[in-house]
């Protein structure tokens, strides 16, 4: 008998209780404790910011008008980055960032996209990219998390290998909980992508005597630009 059959046989045999009876005795799970978390948008934003701040994630709230320009200015002021990785022009975010290419905002950044399989430019990605800008699928207020589904335009390593990860989050897509994301977006029903990620802060470790250190294997900084409508701007103190 194969290992598979032996293991399964043992499990089936081991369940001496009548199966129907066993299952009937496990009540349906009550997710109320997770489902009940409902916050207003300002409250969600605040929770998100607080949770991110706890793990050294940087959150900057921007109104939608000319946000790419404002973001670029902020990055120029607050990072040393020169070599920047962005999504391609046919991607929504890539399109919004297109002026970067022409240096229209007065920066001298070297900009490139993740346009080839990793095998062809691995060393460059690991050693010669300072910062990557990605979109996000959603955000989670309760835990201060970003939800990413990497795509051919924004592959997995984009949010992982460069020392600075910049993520753009639309406040309209800020959920209360991970549970709510799964429910509303019906992940299980629509099928899972190759890779789905929750990212909550820059990479960190406490493996040396419980002392927190950031930037162990992944990004050393995580900068999140949250886009809000004008009317939210005052509430959120957006520039």
């Amino acid at each position: 008998m194969s290992a598979r059959d032996t293991i399964l046989q043992r499990l089936f045999d081991g369940r001496t209780e009548a199966l129907g009876e066993t299952q009937a005795q496990v009540p349906a799970s009550q997710f109320h404790v997770l489902a009940q978390v409902k916050m207003s948008l300002p409250a969600r934003l605040q929770a998100f910011q607080q949770a991110m701040a706890k793990v050294e994630g940087e959150v900057i709230v921007l109104t939608r008008a000319q946000w790419p320009q404002k973001m670029a200015a902020w990055l120029a002021d607050h990072t040393q980055a020169q070599r920047i990785l962005v999504p391609p022009a046919h991607h929504v975010l890539g399109q919004a960032l297109a002026p970067l290419w022409q240096g229209q905002w007065g920066h001298t950044w070297q900009v490139r996209t993740y346009d080839a399989p990793i095998e062809t430019w691995q060393a460059e990605l690991f050693n010669e990219v300072d910062l990557a800008i990605t979109s996000t699928r959603a955000g989670i207020a309760q835990t201060g998390s970003l939800v990413l589904w990497p795509t051919p335009e924004e592959p997995r390593l984009m949010s992982l290998v460069p020392p600075i990860h910049v993520a753009i989050l639309d406040s309209q897509r800020l959920y209360n909980t991970f549970y709510e994301v799964l429910q509303v977006e019906a992940w299980a029903q629509q099928g899972m992508p190759t890779n789905a990620l929750l990212i909550s802060g820059p990479s960190k470790t406490a493996d040396i005597e419980q002392t927190l250190a950031y930037g162990v294997h992944g990004p050393k900084r995580l900068i999140v630009f949250v886009l809000v409508d004008e009317e939210m701007a005052e509430v959120c103190d957006a520039p």
Partner: peptide, 13 residues
């Protein structure tokens, strides 16, 4: 409502 309690969960095994 959250109705489950350990007294219902526990006797299974």
């Amino acid at each position: 409502m959250h109705t489950s309690s350990s007294s219902k969960v526990a006797p299974l095994y």
